[in-house]
Amino acid sequence: MQNTLFDKTFRDSNGKIVVAEMPNPPLILWIVASLLTLIFTTGKINTVLDVLANGSLFTWAWLELFQGVNYFRRALGLAVLIGIIVLKIQYVQ
């Protein structure tokens, strides 16, 4: 396999192009917790679900950033981490 920029960006170690994968546990938890915050819109349950959703999305992004199968997945992790930080900073202000 060649080591072109395209290959490093979109291919995994087996030479397959990987842009999306099956969700891993942190991403599944983020989806479930986020959907449940739409049902439980106030109170302590909403707060716990919000913390779980943000924590699991942060974990997913961190894992992608440092263990992603290619540069695209690592860049996606970085973009999500930056997005989380920016949204939280805007929410606080």
Rank of each mutant, 00 (worst) to 15 (best):
L36G: 06
L29R: 01
F66A: 06
L49F: 02
L29N: 05
S34A: 01
I28P: 09
L76V: 09
F6D: 11
E21V: 08
R74N: 10
A53W: 02
L76T: 09
I39L: 11
R73E: 12
V19K: 14
Q90D: 04
E64P: 08
G77S: 08
I31G: 06
T59E: 09
K16V: 03
P26A: 00
Q2I: 02
E21W: 03
S13W: 05
F40A: 07
W62L: 15
Q67L: 08
P26T: 01
L29V: 10
L49T: 08
V19H: 04
W60Y: 13
T42D: 12
T9C: 13
N54P: 04
F40R: 04
D7E: 14
G68N: 05
L36E: 02
A20R: 06
A75C: 08
N46H: 15
T4S: 15
F10N: 07
I82F: 13
V69R: 12
I85G: 03
K88N: 14
R11N: 09
L81A: 14
V80I: 15
S34N: 07
W60E: 13
F10I: 03
F6V: 08
L49Y: 01
V32Y: 00
G15T: 02
G15I: 02
W62M: 15
I39M: 05
T47N: 10
I45T: 15
I31V: 05
F72E: 11
V69Q: 11
G55V: 04
Q90N: 08
G43Q: 11
N24M: 11
S13Q: 14
M22A: 13
E21F: 01
V48T: 04
N3H: 04
L5W: 02
T9A: 15
I85R: 11
L27T: 07
L27I: 03
L87K: 08
K44R: 10
A79L: 13
G55R: 00
Y91I: 00
I89Q: 10
T41A: 04
L5C: 09
I17G: 04
V69H: 09
W60F: 13
M22K: 12
L52C: 09
N24A: 04
R74E: 10
W62F: 15
V86L: 06
L5Q: 05
E64W: 05
A79D: 10
F66L: 10
D7S: 14
M22D: 06
